[in-house]
Design a protein around this nucleic acid. Structure first.
Length: 706
DNA sequence: GATGGACCCGTCTAGACAGCATGTC
DNA sequence: CTAGACGGGTCCATC
């Protein structure tokens, strides 16, 4: 048994602080170390993670129970995992990371005390009925305002509802950015509510207009004349020897602004910095075998101390960029919202240049206050800055007033439930029934009454109808069945739920492929592209349309599902799907990323993420095919296609990439040098292989494996 | 005749979770 | 019902 005092001391020591901050102190007083559940609503940098550490130590050391720490982003989960391990491994705490690309539901997780997960991964672990669930003593849900997200909120909501049911005695810590209705969430979770505005470094918010930056209740900067608006803000920041992040509405804007600013920022660099940046710039340019235009552009900007940051950037480049910013080499980042939620990139000043964002069907409208707050969130680095700044840019006088009343004096939005969307109901009802958690329609209704939706609106009659419809659909697709008033998942239904596939997509695949005999690569890609998992489809320019239609025509005879007519409403969406199929086709024809990007305007980062999703979809289809009668030929085709897509290779290289350490480029090199099969490689002389692969160690490994 | 700025008009729009097989935190 | 920045093309002034 470890005293409360001792736990607090350990945590204080490991975090290298002198004492608990006001938020943390209140949490302790409210009983975080007595197993009290809490909803904590406070700013980004207010030290919420430390609360998890307190509860985790208490639960593990005193009760021999586990902590599960739920994160909305894999990057965030990784960060927490590294952090926890570094601090608490020495006290005997075993920390594990469990996210999509990292491991599976194996019982091995039961050996660990603290398990850091993404929300969806934990949902999946429950679907696989992980045996250690009942050893959980505390569940921490980070960034719980994600509940409001139409795509990903429902998973978190269902997850927490389930946890409350199966672990009624577990402690729940729900962390949120400052939100309007933390009390409602507290009521739902049966938790006390801790609201605070505390920040370790004060944040001043303001508006920039007419050559000035006015910080509310603080000071005013006069910007130099003769420079563009963004340039003058940058100059003002750099003269103070600080860094800043611009938030813009589109990727294209981030790239354009970064290039524009690089001309100015360059003059502020010191000799040493230029050297360092040159190295990073080269690394960025050479991330891919053949750099794409975007890679070159980013490299150019980095050289001058500026980067643009959005989801089209490759993963490795992101890492390089983040490190360089943390070191202070990069002076300015121009970013989309990609940076607002993600990782911990402390800076001095955040400038929201585009407070409006385009929403399809809505035009361009103001961002939610919460989102802007997130962008401001990390401004002001403890130990470096005495304060931080969050600045909105106004385009005219009217906007000055609007921004002021909306963002600076206005109220935060409420968090609401998004659980009533069709896709959420589809996915979660199937999952809840398939793991035997709910066994009848009545039980489903009862369950939904206990969700945040049910608690917030006090009744679910609106939902009831939708739930009935959903059950009907799942039944008609053969994923659920009814026996004596009880609901049950069919074998295939259960598998679909475990594969984490949207039942709608699963049904699409099954119906399209059942009895199909004549598909080819392109048309199979077209089918994949119809799935919601790959939406939104890439956008289509008039030039693309021409190219894509050509491709469709070429493969016309291999279409195994109905193509919409040119005059149909769905035709344009079909073309966009076919565009993705075209991109994939080029990819497996071994066209370079640069070529694909140039022809069809897709960023390298986007290509890779689509490939990854498709790999998962193809795997899932193959798994489904074990339970439904597909033609043998189609199965073979799918299997081959999966390998080709993952590596981006022609058919002839398929056998070669099964060797470890051999991917797209090396396989091509081997093939072109006459080593086109495993047996030929076996027979080949070592020195010949070394000549082709340019690596002694690789060849040695290869030979020893064969 | 080349260069470059002003202006018009069409185009296009953020992000990122999950399976599994590996060998290991 | 609702936007706005970019970039390519065009025209025209200037040297």
């Amino acid at each position: 048994m470890i005293e409360k005092k001792e736990i607090v001391e350990k945590v204080i020591f490991e975090n290298q602080i002198e004492k608990l901050n006001p938020v943390q102190e209140r949490a302790v007083k409210m009983g975080i170390l007595e197993g009290e559940s809490l909803v904590v609503s406070s700013p980004t940098s207010s030290g919420k993670t430390l609360l998890a550490e307190l509860a985790g130590l208490n639960v593990t050391l005193n009760k021999r129970k586990k902590m599960v720490y739920l994160c909305p982003l894999v990057a965030l989960a990784r960060e927490k995992y590294e952090d926890f391990k570094r601090k608490y491994q020495k006290y005997g705490i075993k920390v594990a990371l469990s996210v999509g690309n990292y491991d599976s539901s194996d019982p091995w997780l039961s050996r660990f005390h603290w398990i850091v997960c993404s929300n969806e991964k934990f949902d999946s672990l429950i679907r696989h009925e992980a045996p250690w669930i009942n050893e959980i003593g505390v569940v921490v849900a980070d960034e719980i305002h994600l509940l409001d997200d139409p795509n990903r909120g429902p998973t978190l909501e269902i997850l927490l509802t389930i946890l409350k049911e199966i672990l009624p005695r577990a402690q729940i810590l729900a962390f949120s950015a400052t939100i309007q209705n933390a009390e409602e969430i507290g009521e739902w979770l049966g938790a006390k509510v801790l609201k605070s505005d505390f920040r370790p470094v004060p944040l001043y918010k303001g508006i920039s207009f007419d050559g000035k930056i006015k910080l509310f209740g603080f000071k005013e900067y006069k910007l130099s004349e003769g420079l563009g608006l963004e340039e003058s803000i940058v100059e003002n920041t750099l003269l103070m020897k600080k860094q800043l992040i611009f938030f813009l509405s589109s990727r294209r804007n981030t790239e354009a602004l970064a290039e524009k600013l690089s001309k100015l920022v360059f003059h502020f660099l010191e000799e040493k910095e230029i050297e360092g940046l040159k190295k990073i710039s080269q690394a960025i340019e050479n991330t891919l075998e053949i750099p794409t235009e975007q890679c070159k552009k980013l490299a150019r900007c980095v050289e001058k101390g500026v980067v643009f940051y959005h989801s089209g950037i490759l993963f490795d480049q992101r890492i390089l960029v983040e490190e360089a910013y943390k070191k202070g080499l990069i002076k300015v980042i121009t970013s989309t919202t990609a940076l607002a939620y993600g990782l911990n990139l402390p800076n001095f000043r955040a400038v929201v240049r585009d407070a409006k964002r385009y929403y399809p069907g809505l035009g361009s409208i103001y961002l939610p206050v919460l989102e802007v707050e997130q962008m401001f969130g990390r401004s002001g680095r403890p130990k470096y800055d005495d304060w931080g700044e969050g600045i909105l840019v106004a385009k005219n006088e009217k906007e000055v007033e609007e921004l002021e009343s909306y963002y600076l004096k206005g109220e935060l939005e409420e968090i609401s439930s998004k659980i009533s969307t069709e896709s959420a109901l589809r996915i979660h009802i199937l999952s809840l029934v398939s793991n035997h958690f709910l066994k009848s329609e009545t039980e489903i209704f009862e369950f939904f009454k206990k969700t945040f939706f049910g608690k917030k609106y006090r009744e679910i009659s609106v939902l009831k109808e939708k739930i009935e419809e959903t059950i009907f659909l799942l039944e008609s697709w053969g994923f659920l069945e009814r026996k004596e008033g009880k609901l049950n998942a069919t074998k295939i239904g259960r598998r679909i739920s475990q594969l984490y596939l949207d039942p709608l997509s699963a049904n699409l695949f099954i119906e399209s492929l059942k009895g199909c005999q004549k598909a080819n690569e392109f048309t199979l890609f077209c089918l994949l592209a119809k799935a919601g998992e790959l939406k939104p489809s890439p956008s289509l320019t008039t030039k693309d349309a021409f190219l894509v239609e050509e491709e469709i025509l070429k493969n016309e005879e291999f279409f195994f599902f109905q193509m919409p007519d040119e005059f149909d409403e769905e035709y344009e969406e079909f073309l966009r799907e076919a565009k993705l199929a075209t991109i994939f086709s080029f990819w497996i024809e071994e066209k370079t990323e640069g070529e694909i990007m140039e022809k069809l305007k897709i960023t390298p980062g986007e290509l890779h993420s689509r490939v990854e999703i498709s790999d998962w979809l193809l795997y899932s289809i193959l798994e489904i095919s074990k339970l439904v009668p597909f033609e043998q030929e189609i199965k073979k085709e799918l299997k081959k296609l999966r390998v080709r897509l993952r590596y981006g290779i022609k058919e002839e290289l398929v056998p070669l990439v099964s060797l470890r350490g051999i991917g797209r480029v090396r396989a091509r090199a081997l093939f072109d040098s006459g080593f086109g099969s495993i047996s030929k490689i076996k027979e080949a002389k070592t020195e010949d292989l070394v000549r082709v692969l340019k690596s002694q160690t690789l060849v040695k490994k290869l030979k020893s494996e064969l």
